[in-house]
Design a protein around this nucleic acid. Structure first.
Lengths: 207, 207
DNA sequence: TGAAACTTATGAAATAATTCACAAATTATA
DNA sequence: TATAATTTGTGAATTATTTCATAAGTTTCA
């Protein structure tokens, strides 16, 4: 399989979401041109993106929706069953823990850590064990490579510790800057920056 | 000013965050090469990105940190003071409403809407008026162009309504697919997709 | 003051991503 | 069955983004 570029990779979840919706609506078959209007991505880009995974369609026919769903959900890691931890069980952390759309994901959150473990673990909607952050080393699940970071500060220290413990990827909700240790990757989720970008764009539109 | 590309625009908040941290640490002056190590973006990309805004640095010297902060925060919309609404006051919506890092943002959330307005507005940490979603039209703040969407379903209908009411940009937290009306733009914040991408990348690293 | 050491800003080159254009295969229809 | 109408998949062309290379300006230090 060819190397899949980052820009293409970002579109795969978009396709998957759209295809799931289409399938729910009873659509069995789709052409790249139709899907294009649906997700607002050029049909030729869609075909190119798909072709990186394999020959998923049939000339003169199009693509089989359920077939695509199967392929993309596999491709995007449903099979991986990754063990993840969450650090920082504040409002946002809690929101993520009991996110009601947590099916079809690349794995599960096994446990969480917080400086107020006692208090947090008693919250009604927290459905995983919560340990004190000092117990990170001893309570770290075997083979866990992904951590979700929802703490308001002190990120650098924790990231370094996570690196020591073999974590490879971080989903970063903090707004603090930290230096990423060699061999780690991260994905930022920054609501404020996202809003800023949007405001910038909306204001550019006016000119 | 030259047209600023989307890829560049995505980096501006990264710079701003890093610069704020540096300033807190007492750093007054920085070179693109230093900043490069700090944010893990090539120095030449940084200089190019900066140059799109203007001549922000001095040859042989570098950049003035506080000067840059001023410029970027202006550029990213602190001056805009955009009025925003939030739709869907569930766990995530509430988390966003009382996000403790809500300074230095492009504006403020003026009010929120929910199908259970009564219940929601009584939650201790909800600090803006919450109206029933049926009152969207009448309670819409004057000049509001940005909406934050945190509802679990029924996005399309609300998006269409928002479009009618003059909303131009949507920060989309829903995982539902919807078709974006002409003239609107959106930014997706999709935690699940983000995790999927990360898992995919982490697993690619191993090969 | 003057020379050496830096650092930015930016044309030009290189690389990456998207889009075009069309051959090859399939379906629909007469 | 034969023909017309589709639609994919992919080299080639185009467009966008990043990186190189260096002129021009600034600082540092003897």
């Amino acid at each position: 399989m060819a190397e899949i570029s980052k820009s293409t990779l970002k579109r795969y979840p978009v396709y998957l979401k759209a295809l799931r919706k289409l399938s729910e609506d009873g659509v069995k078959r789709i052409m790249s041109s139709e899907l294009s209007e649906y997700v607002d991505i050029k049909s030729t880009t869609i075909r190119r993106d798909f072709s990186l995974i394999g020959q998923l369609g049939k000339q003169g026919y199009g693509y089989d929706v359920d077939e695509l769903i199967k392929i993309f959900s596999r491709e995007l890691g449903e099979e991986y069953d990754e063990k993840m931890i969450l650090i920082g069980v504040g409002r946002l952390g809690t929101a993520i823990l009991n996110y009601n759309n947590w099916n079809h994901v690349a794995g599960e959150i096994v446990c969480a850590f917080d400086i107020q473990a006692e208090k947090r673990s008693k919250e009604p909607k927290v459905n995983v064990p919560v340990y004190h952050i000092d117990q990170l080393r001893e309570k770290m699940p075997e083979g866990c490579e992904i951590a979700i970071l929802c703490i308001p500060s002190g990120a650098q220290e924790i990231v370094n510790e996570l690196h020591d413990l073999g974590v490879k990827g971080i989903v970063n909700f903090t707004r603090e800057h930290f230096v990423l240790p060699e061999g780690m990757i991260k994905q930022d989720v920054d609501v404020v920056s996202t809003i800023q970008e949007l405001v910038f764009e909306v204001n550019s539109m006016k000119k």
